[in-house]
């Protein structure tokens, strides 16, 4: 019993450590005074200022646009590549898989600056397109790594059966293989989207003037010190994440109970 309450206290302390900074950030986003130490009344003015801040709104737009485009393009290229890699023989497969792992294990800062060197070396203007290309580049490996396991689980006779029944190869892929590996593709897409939204280091090196993502804007604001607008922004982002996770969790538990009922 003593053991259990000790564990409880430890867990509470760790959760406190994880959540205290976030909760304080949220609480102080409603603080009227700009100084953080004292509470001087409830206000929503930081939220109003946040929505009036052109720079923040613009970076939110770019963050979303880059995340949507890069995750979609990476998913298409990555899924196609995964299907083909799955069929490859040992030697070739090893080489390509090593190439795939390279950006995953390489430090972000090296990936970011090597891309910056490439763009400047080839006189490619740094801006939205270079940012998008960089995001696609670091997203593709994650899509491949999410799709490949699904392909491995796949019964290879399924495809042959479809061909025997007269399907063309393309039709068989569309109607048999793709639906089977769909969960992996969706996972890859979501992973790519999240990584893209969350990325700072690679974006920091590959973007040009005028185009900045939310992470870059937060960094340049935070470097100058505390800004209550960031608190307001954090609160909104934290609530969004919380809401999304709750929805996903509810859907997942809903599905599992449905499956249990079917069984």
């Amino acid at each position: 019993m003593v053991n259990r309450s000790l564990k409880k206290i430890y867990a509470i302390l760790i959760y406190l450590f994880l959540y205290a900074p976030i909760i304080i950030l949220v609480v102080f986003s409603f603080n009227a005074s700009k100084s953080r130490g004292t509470w001087s009344g409830f206000t929503l003015k930081w939220y109003l200022e946040l929505f009036r801040d052109r720079q923040i709104m613009k970076s939110l737009y770019y963050t979303m646009l880059v995340a949507i485009l890069s995750s979609l393009i990476a998913t298409i290229i990555g899924t196609a590549a995964a299907i083909s890699i799955h069929k490859m023989k040992n030697f070739k497969k090893t080489i390509i898989m090593n190439l795939t792992y390279l950006p995953v294990v390489n430090p972000d800062i090296v990936t970011g600056l090597s891309l910056m060197i490439l763009f400047i070396f080839t006189r490619f203007p740094l801006g939205f397109i270079s940012l998008l290309l960089a995001h696609i580049t670091f997203n593709i490996p994650y899509v491949i790594l999410s799709v490949l396991p699904k392909l491995k689980q796949l019964d290879k006779h399924l495809y042959e059966a479809a061909l025997d029944l007269g399907a063309t190869p393309w039709y068989a892929y569309k109607k048999v293989i793709l639906p089977e590996i769909m969960p992996g593709i969706i996972t890859g897409l979501l992973l790519a989207f999240t990584l893209s939204v969350d990325d700072f280091v690679i974006s920091f090196f590959t973007t040009g003037s005028g185009v900045s993502t939310l992470s870059i804007t937060i960094y340049s604001m935070a470097r100058r010190g505390i800004n209550p607008k960031i608190n307001a922004l954090s609160t909104l982002l934290f609530l969004t994440v919380l809401l999304l996770l709750i929805i996903v969790n509810m859907r997942m538990s809903g599905e599992s109970t449905k499956k249990e009922r079917e069984i």
Partner: peptide
């Protein structure tokens, strides 16, 4: 509960400690 803070932007998590 352990995973949720990870989903918040890394810069904001660092910034939170600045205010503290």
């Amino acid at each position: 509960l352990f995973v949720i803070p990870m989903w918040m932007n890394f810069l904001l998590r660092t910034y939170a400690w600045m205010t503290l």
